[in-house]
């Protein structure tokens, strides 16, 4: 069972439908007790960093998530991925979940290479550059296009958390992770077949992390059409 943490930030319908298409049972909830029963979590999110952290703090989700990742996997998507980092400069500097090292900053809109203006948000399909092809999230996948929509990106001083990057005038972390904590800046649920395959890899990782692993639980693979 996958849990989608509903803390009021954005639209969860497309994500839940993507899980449904993969044959993955899920619950959408804001109740830590219910979510604690799941095998893996997804932290979605659209909107402002500060509002998101305020929403997470309000219902003690921050301490819940900190405990959860000691045992089970977490995938942050878009803003949910940015929340995994230490801090964001969006609005006034706001502290994040600090599961991963780095800081979320705004695209400057001026290319550091050429000095030319560029458009913000970074919106559309961009190519991925795999940094850690052996990550469980990238298993069996070839670098492809993914769908991005964001004005802020994570800057990290620790390249070991970069699983894939994309280039938009800056090196933009596209897939990040350490241990059982993962994040994608793009929307896998909107990234065509590649996104679907990546989500499936996360589900396989979640189901494979269960201890012990009953073989029947791996049927996601067969149902994944």
């Amino acid at each position: 069972m996958i849990g989608i943490l509903d803390y009021g930030m954005g639209n969860l319908y497309s994500l839940s439908q993507a899980l449904k298409r993969l044959g993955q049972p899920y619950i959408i909830s804001d109740d830590p007790e219910k979510l604690d029963q799941t095998d893996g979590l997804i932290l979605p999110g659209v909107g402002a960093f500060k509002d998101a952290m305020a929403a997470l703090n309000k219902k003690n989700h921050v301490s819940f998530l900190s405990r959860y990742i000691q045992k089970k996997p977490l995938l942050g998507i878009c803003l949910g991925m940015q929340l995994l980092f230490e801090e964001s400069e969006e609005g006034e500097p706001t502290r994040g979940l600090a599961f991963l090292p780095g800081r979320v900053v705004r695209f400057s809109g001026i290319s550091p290479k050429t000095g030319e203006r560029y458009k913000v948000p970074h919106m559309g399909w961009n190519t991925l550059d795999f940094k850690k092809a052996d990550s469980p999230l990238l298993k069996g996948l070839q670098p492809d296009y993914a769908y991005f929509v964001h004005s802020y990106f994570a800057m990290t001083y620790d390249p070991s958390v970069l699983i894939a990057t994309t280039d938009y005038h800056e090196q933009v972390p596209a897939i990040v992770g350490r241990g059982r904590v993962f994040g994608t800046q793009f929307h896998p649920e909107k990234s065509g077949n590649f996104g679907q395959a990546l989500l499936k890899n996360y589900l396989l990782f979640v189901n494979g992390s269960k201890n012990p692993v009953p073989p029947a639980q791996l049927s996601v693979d067969q149902e994944g059409r």
Binding site: Y13, Q17, A18, V149, H187, G192
Partner: peptide
């Protein structure tokens, strides 16, 4: 559409209020 499609989509036409916007985005429009 949102239950099947795995690429983004936009909806336009006859949107007059924040309520219309909310309803469409919550239904899965990007």
């Amino acid at each position: 559409v949102a239950s099947q499609l795995n690429i983004p989509f936009t909806v336009g036409g006859g949107i007059h209020s924040l309520e219309n916007i909310k309803a469409l985005l919550r239904a899965g429009a990007d």
